[in-house]
Design a protein around this nucleic acid. Structure first.
Length: 320
DNA sequence: AATTGTATCAACCGCGACCTC
DNA sequence: TGAGGTCGCGGTTGATACAAT
């Protein structure tokens, strides 16, 4: 037995919204709010639409303060940072970008940003494990993600980082999965450098060394495309290799593999008081992101409302 | 000018989680 | 406690625009 439909499909209009429908929905919500019930809203508003469709239209297009158009370099940076940490939790990422919707960010990532980054990866990174050696990565690659934001554009900066080939350099890859260093507060000072050899012996890391992206995939899924998890892990590995960092004031917190991080139950109690007073999205520490995840997967009136005042305002607008 | 390929993004769908009774 | 209703999320699809041939 299948799931009961959320609405009478036969009596519901689908496809693009007309300006008249937009006006009806906008006027109704501005006047009455959603009443906490999207399912009954279309009927009350005189719309032949599914409640979910109304909700989506409102959240992604009609609500106030929605930002459309080009993403800034800073937004790119935030998206990349958070994607490396938490994967495709678009709603959480959107919570860090006032005016942007999860749908917007998801589309932007899938259609542009991912490709942008793919093109900037060193060719040697776009290979499967046996071809990935420490000498594949120019040493200057490691410095990019340690940069603080400058006037240089995000991608231009990446291009500069990757544009000069270096055949002889080698890098020592910090192994952030080291539990001791994690439990000691996860500061950059406690990173333990563990050889690439170690990583290759670690099944988890072997997985993560699968290239990030689609070309040259090792056919992890039946259709030859790269699996989602592998893509995220590959990206995390890419970010890790390049020491992509979250800054937290003067502290620098290294990005770590989320899945591993969750296993070791990090403790960041000393940073808790910093959370709400942060002024820039990248000021959140990893524990904070964890909290976002847990609160986000919890109640609908979730924790991320407290993150960003703009978002809170928006949420308040939804429900009045 | 017509056709084909590619990129973009709004919208849909299904699922898991939560809430209420 | 569990069944039904609803919400919100993330993946995917499809229409349209634009570019290339």
């Amino acid at each position: 037995m299948g799931r009961a439909p959320c609405c009478d499909k036969a009596n519901v209009k689908k496809g693009p919204w007309s300006p008249e429908e937009d006006t009806k929905l906008k006027e109704y919500i501005e006047k009455h709010g959603t009443g906490g019930n999207w399912i009954s809203l279309p009927q009350k508003a005189g719309l032949r639409r599914c409640g979910k469709s109304c909700r989506l239209r409102w959240l992604n297009y009609l609500r106030p303060n929605i930002k459309h158009g080009e993403f800034s370099d800073e937004e790119d940076r935030i998206i990349c940072t958070l994607y490396a940490n938490i994967g495709s939790r678009w709603s959480i990422i959107a919570a860090q970008l006032p005016g942007r919707t999860d749908n917007d960010i998801k589309n932007y990532w899938n259609t542009k940003l991912k490709k942008k980054l793919m093109n900037l990866l060193p060719q040697s990174h776009n290979t499967v494990l046996p071809y990935l050696t420490s000498s594949s990565f120019p040493s200057h690659c490691t410095s990019y993600f340690n940069q603080t934001p400058t006037n240089t554009s995000f991608t231009t900066s990446l291009e500069q980082q990757f544009s000069v080939p270096s055949s002889s350099s080698s890098i020592s890859l910090p192994f952030y999965h080291n539990q001791e260093s994690l439990l000691n507060g996860f500061s950059s000072n406690t990173n333990t450098n563990i050889s690439m050899q170690y990583q290759l012996q670690n099944p988890m890391m072997k997985e993560s060394l699968v290239m990030f992206g689609s070309e040259g995939s090792c056919c992890s899924s039946s259709d030859g495309s790269l699996g989602k998890q592998e893509e995220i892990m590959g990206f995390q590995n890419f970010m890790q290799i390049n020491k992509f960092n979250l800054s937290h004031g003067s502290d620098v917190v290294d990005v770590n593999n989320q899945w591993e991080r969750e296993k070791v139950n990090l403790c960041f109690s000393q940073n808790h008081e910093k959370q709400i007073t942060s002024t820039t999205p990248l000021d959140y520490d990893l524990e904070y992101i964890k909290q976002l995840i847990s609160s986000n997967s919890g109640s609908c009136n979730n924790g991320y409302l407290s993150i960003d005042e703009n978002k809170m305002e928006e949420k308040t607008m939804y429900y009045y």
